[in-house]
Design a protein around this nucleic acid. Sequence first.
DNA 1: CTCGATCCCTGGACGC
DNA 2: TGCGTCCAGGGATCGA
Length: 301
Amino acid sequence: MPELPEVETVARGLRRAILGRRIVSVTLGKTDFIDDPVALEQHLPGREIEAVERYGKFMLLRLSTAARASRVPTNGDVVPASLLVHLGMTGQIAPHPAEQPREKHTHVCLLLDDGRELRYTDARRFGRIAYLTETPLAEELLGFGADPLEVSGKEFASRICGRRARIKALLLDQSVLRGVGNIYADESLWRAKIHPARTGAQLNKKQAGTLRRALQEILKKAIVMRGSSISDFLDAEGEPGDYQRHHRAYGREGRACYRCKSAIRRGIVAGRSSYFCPKCQRAPRGFAALPLPRAKRKKDN
DNA sequence: CTCGATCCCTGGACGC
DNA sequence: TGCGTCCAGGGATCGA
């Protein structure tokens, strides 16, 4: 599931692959996850992809203000605009040879001026794509919180400490921090030895500092490892990431904690599966972990 | 302000 | 082998 490190990996791949390419034409499949599908068809042809940026879990494909001398017909767009892309759970975006058969669930194809097609596939369609000019884009981005890689210790503490919400919910809240999802929330809480069900107000300054450092170190390492591939994450080169091999909590229910050998447990916090060490991460009063499921085996009874 | 519930959607895992 | 059921989760939304 694409979170900050995965989206950063994809953005870097796209930067290498499609920067400076011009969009020739647009082909759409299912469009229920696109803000305004017609806007894509009307405004993308003729535009050049001038930059690829990441903002939280979003990617921004910055488009040229107008088509330069080209045979590609345009609508004379002159205002700066971007294509906003969110990969949701299962979104993948990558260039393919145009003659290559399209994979199932391919919903957006941008034919480029070098003969390749930038394709967006998304089985569950939890992603989002929007064509936005500057002002709507700025408004869109206004509601997001701090970049977890850039946030200062002071600002991090001010956004966390004093809140009554659970720390897991705060980490997942994109208006608090932009880019953190379920995996990296659990991983950073495990490293900082903080239980996901504790409230922000229960953390002192020192714990907040520890958590911030843990989060930043984990995100940076995960970016170096090109993200986590749990089920189907692939980067812009179609390659899986490697960070899932370094997970210490996420997805490790019943397996030994890397620090203390206790069985990692799972519970629901903020409506999400949350993995934690019951010994290293002391639970607040009243918190109930899910019972450990029986070991899975082929034929066991 | 914070919570849980519900919905969106499909594929994979699991039980019988 | 096959079918039904549950679950995964980011985000929007709604009611408590």
